[in-house]
Amino acid sequence: MAPFKDVRPLLQQNRVKLWLSPAIVILSAFSVIVLGYSIYLSLQNINLVKQAHAFVGLSNFADLLHDGRAWSSVGKTLKFSVIATFVELILGLAIALYFNREFRGRRIVRTLMLIPMIMTPVVSGLIWRIFYDPNAGIINYFLSVIGLGNKYDWLGNVDLAMFAVILSDVWQWTPFVFLILASSLDALPGEPLEAAKVDGATRLQTFWHVVLPLMKPSLLIAFLLRMMDSIKTFDIIYVMTRGGPSLSTETTNMYAYIQGFNNFNISYATVINISITIAITFIFTFIYKKMTSTRANG
């Protein structure tokens, strides 16, 4: 398809520009302004409780390198994103396979699974906080009903708190993975499956050697999107633990928020933000390029 074969190239280029420019110009202008201003802020020592501030060069960045709390938050962010993403992928896949058959209410199930994504995160975070309450919460109540004890200190225990926060992220975003994978399963071509059946493959073999490879692109995209968004998670952590106890759930986002909006160290918060953004952009551009190239090849 070459719709513009006959048009003079110059005119065509202009036309392309005209169509593309509004969004691209606005988006680039916004990025440049935000980044420019952020860099300006990052080179000062602005704290809102003081009126005066001065140019301090790169010393904020140097401070960041020696900031143990910042490094700890990087670790927590990775822990949160990686575990949450993998649990969501596995659970989402399992549920998609479970529902991958004809049954009454198929549409309703998919519809209901949308709900966690649509709920306001601030509200669902609060609800989970109540569910997790060790004394009045519903989770410990049910555990005690089925005889598993009732003294789990979900959000107050350093080892459990991260797990508990992850679980609520899993609750919110597994449906997303499920919906992607379910529609990918719907679209699987029939022939390879038939062929496998003819060859006498077991269900597990069919799944492992036929279905899974066919689903690879959707699994990859689900992985990428969840990784990207889970790093940005803020609302639920803010509401559930505020990064505690003893920093066990303090992600970089949360730490930047505390530096900026609690300690009012505007410059330092900006430095944290810039550093994270650069790091994430690098990693994801890399993964994305890799993925798109494998897709093009495969």
Partner: peptide, 25 residues
């Protein structure tokens, strides 16, 4: 492809990054 990557990358940045500059501007 580069253009799409650029567009995608602006999705990666955490909202908190642009909040302070936008506010002051």
């Amino acid at each position: 492809m580069n253009m799409i990557t650029f567009i995608l990358s602006s999705r990666v940045a955490p909202p908190i990054l642009m909040l302070l500059p936008v506010y002051f501007i």
